[in-house]
């Protein structure tokens, strides 16, 4: 294990930004590209937003915890809430499925998280909560040119 951290915060939308910044800072030593970082932050945002909106139904009280580990060029991160949980995980992960169509949710959160990560697994139990674990590899860029030359 190269490095590891845990962050807990109140499930309010202002802290989605906090989570994104903390994770950006945690992976800074991997020297990501702008695209890799954007993908990684999107994963964090989607998972944290789900915990706030679905897990705690915006009660403004629940606690979200992010555990992250760096192993070489790979980041593994678990985002946990102790909220309502997901009764049917398979259905929840289907593209376009949302339990809150009235809120104009896109139902694409899980699809986006899957496509931007190298591995994703979901644990959930109704009334206990949800934990989503991602792995993302940050490939060192085969930079065979120096800017200003080719």
């Amino acid at each position: 294990m190269d490095n590891e951290m845990t962050l807990s915060f109140i499930a309010i939308s202002e802290n989605e930004g906090l989570a994104r910044m903390v994770m950006t800072s945690f992976i800074a030593s991997l020297d990501p590209t702008i695209d890799e970082l954007a993908e990684f932050k999107t994963i964090v945002s989607e998972a944290v937003t789900n915990a706030i909106i679905h897990g705690y139904e915006e009660d403004g009280e629940g606690i979200i915890t992010i555990r992250a580990k760096r192993n070489g060029q790979s980041i593994t991160m678990t985002i946990t809430d102790e909220g309502r949980g997901i009764p049917n995980v398979e259905q929840a992960m289907e593209p376009l499925y949302t339990s809150k169509p009235e809120r104009e949710r896109s139902g694409m959160g899980f699809t986006i998280m899957e496509s931007f990560s190298d591995h994703l697994s979901v644990w959930s139990e109704p009334q206990k909560g949800t934990a989503i674990t991602f792995t993302k590899e940050f490939l060192p860029v085969q930079s065979n040119f120096v800017l200003g030359e080719r």
Partner: peptide
């Protein structure tokens, strides 16, 4: 050079550390 920079930028290959 400007071309290459623009290409890199659009391509998202620029390192975050550089833009920082």
């Amino acid at each position: 050079i400007g071309e290459i920079q623009r290409f890199l930028r659009d391509d998202g290959m620029v390192k975050v550390s550089r833009s920082i």
